[in-house]
Design a binder for these strands. Structure first.
Length: 367
DNA sequence: AAGGCGTGGAT
DNA sequence: TATCCAAGCCT
């Protein structure tokens, strides 16, 4: 059934043409073994492949680079990462987003170190069992690190394939057809380079807007281009509008400059990360009700609110600040973070914005 | 199985 | 300024 539909799509593109393009145009990335080194027998380190793939989930190469460098410097092996304190992993991940990835990263490292002697499973099924490793990541690691002929499908590859086949079925319904096409196209030789070539093509040539079809190695095979609909693919359902929630943040500053922080609950939004005390956020919330203040101090509202957009809602947070005497005890579950420690705390970006507004200095750039 | 889950860059 | 979206996973 699906096979017939795929056959009718009649892909004429050849993996060899894409690999030739990749040999000349592969992006140089810190976690990647370039094709010429690959040809001389250099093999990628599964730890680095895994770490980069998790960081790259829904995250741009530009954002990942410095985090990848910091992580591999601090924790050169999966065993080193397994031995790290989770708190330190969250601090190092702060600013990168989707914090469940960091929690799963630590769990996964422990599994690999404790149950597999520090060696990653070398096939898709084994990798798929690891926390934080889904269908895409398992296939990518299997292909790139272990030379397995795995069908790697990410957002780039969905775009490339729907255009190549002029596939007008909207996502996510088109996913099975796309997978079938990728399985047919993936070569026995160099499956990892093929996957990376498809992703590079999607990232640099077959871009969401204004694709550079003139530079594409597959331009003559592209049904979407022939039909003049390439740029409109893949089709997607329109996204739901984001509601706006409101809340308050309380920035208490001790005379020595220390700021009062606490830890958020271990799961859910910004789970396990640190913050100045905040109220719950809702569409109806008041932003001038001091009932939730962590300490009985003289609170003053900061001039500007913090605006921040999460995946599924906008947040407007009023920032209230107060000076605290030097002998003020931190409430249960809270601690005073001295200025020298603040940059290193596990503070997500939205909370760095709140602190910057409360303290009255520019936000430390997320690392 | 649809919705929760971050952030910054491009347009 | 507002919207889109990037190498997805989990429940």
């Amino acid at each position: 059934m699906l096979g017939q539909a795929v056959d009718r799509m009649n892909i004429t593109a050849n993996p060899a043409e894409l690999l030739t393009w990749y040999d000349r145009h592969a992006r140089r990335l810190p976690w990647r073994v370039p094709p010429e080194d690959r040809a001389h027998g250099v093999v990628p380190d599964p730890y680095r492949v895994w770490l980069s793939e998790v960081m790259l989930q829904q995250t741009t190469v530009a954002a990942v680079r410095s985090y990848f460098e910091a992580f591999t410097k601090k924790w050169p092996t999966v065993k080193a990462l397994a031995r790290a304190a989770e708190e330190d992993v969250m601090k190092a991940w702060a600013g990168l987003g989707y914090y469940s990835r960091a929690r799963n990263l630590k769990k996964c490292a422990e599994t690999v170190a404790d149950d597999f002697g520090g060696r990653f499973p070398d096939d898709e099924d084994g990798l798929r069992q690891l926390p934080g490793v889904g269908p895409y990541t398992a296939a990518a690691i299997a292909a790139i690190a272990f030379d397995r002929k795995a069908a790697v499908v990410d957002g780039n590859i969905e775009r490339v394939m729907t255009r190549l086949a002029a596939l007008e079925t909207p996502l996510p319904q088109a996913k099975p057809q796309i997978r079938a096409l990728v399985e047919k196209l993936t070569p026995e030789g160099r499956p990892g380079d093929f996957a990376q070539a498809m992703m590079d093509l999607g990232a640099t040539i077959c871009t969401p807007r204004k694709p550079a079809c003139a530079l594409c190695p597959w331009t003559s095979h592209c049904a979407g281009r022939k039909q003049g609909i390439a740029e409109s693919l893949p089709r997607k359902a329109p996204k739901a509008e984001k509601p706006t929630r409101k809340g308050m943040a309380f920035v208490a500053i001790r005379e020595d400059g220390a700021v009062l922080l606490r830890r958020r609950p271990p799961r859910g939004l910004l789970g396990g990360m640190s913050e100045p005390p905040t109220t719950p956020w809702s569409e109806e919330a008041e932003t001038d009700n001091l009932g939730h203040a962590p300490l009985p101090l003289e609170w003053q509202r900061s001039a500007a609110d913090v605006r921040h957009t999460f995946t599924h809602f906008h947040l407007e947070m009023a920032v209230w600040r107060a000076k605290a005497p030097s002998d003020t005890a931190a409430p249960d579950g809270h601690w005073w973070s001295p200025p020298a420690d603040l940059d290193g705390e596990a503070l997500p970006t939205v909370m760095r914005k709140a602190l910057a507004e409360g303290i009255g200095k520019p936000a430390a750039k997320a690392r």
